[in-house]
């Protein structure tokens, strides 16, 4: 169970999150839908610990720990994973080196033995095979020259390796054509499990056709304005976000 209470956050003095309350049930897939500028990406960055966002109030409890007290790397070791909307290119860092460093950094923080090169290679090969990722991908520099689909598949591969308890997917569908979207969604679906909670952030319902949510929340103007079942996503697709924006404007 992850409990977000009264979360307020701002960037450059401008308040974006204006009191978010959310209970995310363990093992469920929660979707957050909302129009542009509602605070979707801010929420994902704040959960992962990006420093240019200032949290001014509230808490995010996961297994009795307030994530907001932790550094980004400590959150990662505690089991938080953010799949980026725009995965960052890092020239000169080989994917395999990056993945191994990440896995071992987390193991070290948790007091576990680090994996040696051989054990890591076996692990990563298994995961790549399961997700249908090509072998040469891990020899390339992180995300450099990769297509939108490849970058998102890289994010899913990282998720598979790091085995988070709480995965936040920030607009995973953006920049993907329908075939790439299906492949990425298929990867995410493989990773669903009773110990893993998902927060899937998206503008469009399209992604939710492939990653079926258990609960759907609507985020508008920095607050959760409605919560419902999967059918809520369809309603939003049909009617748009106007009614929520209208309420704010009124």
């Amino acid at each position: 169970m992850i409990e977000i209470k009264n979360l307020h956050a701002e960037i450059d003095g401008k308040e974006i999150l204006k009191g978010i309350d959310l209970n995310l049930e363990k093992g469920k897939v929660h979707a957050i839908m909302g129009p542009n500028g509602s605070g979707k990406s801010t929420l994902s960055y704040v959960l992962a610990g990006r420093e240019d966002y200032e949290v001014t109030d509230g808490s995010v409890q996961m297994d009795g720990v307030d994530l907001l007290d932790l550094e980004p790397e400590e959150r990662a070791a505690a089991g938080v994973f953010l799949a980026f909307q725009y995965p960052v290119e890092i020239p000169g860092v080989q994917m395999s080196n990056f993945l191994k460093t990440a896995v071992n950094a987390q193991r070290k923080q948790r007091g576990e033995d680090e994996l040696d090169a051989l054990a890591f290679l076996k692990l990563v090969k298994d995961k790549m095979k399961a997700l249908g990722v090509k072998d040469d991908m891990i020899k390339r520099p992180v995300n450099v020259g990769a297509s939108g689909g490849e970058k998102k598949r890289n994010e899913v591969l990282q998720m598979a390796l790091l085995e988070p308890k709480f995965a936040v997917l920030d607009e995973t569908d953006s920049g993907l054509d329908i075939d790439a979207l299906k492949i990425v969604a298929e990867g995410v679906n493989q990773l669903r499990g009773e110990d893993r909670t998902f927060l899937v952030i998206t503008h469009y319902q399209r992604l939710l056709d492939y990653i079926k949510p258990d609960v759907v929340h609507v985020l508008a103007n920095g607050k959760i304005v409605k919560t419902g079942g999967p059918e809520l996503a369809q309603e939003l697709e049909a009617r748009g976000y106007a009614e929520f924006l209208g309420e704010e404007a009124a």
Partner: peptide, 16 residues
């Protein structure tokens, strides 16, 4: 800052 945050979000310490 962007890649630094990306790496830290995967578990690397700031120094790493």
């Amino acid at each position: 800052e962007e890649p630094l945050f990306y790496l830290r979000s995967r578990g690397l310490s700031e120094n790493e």
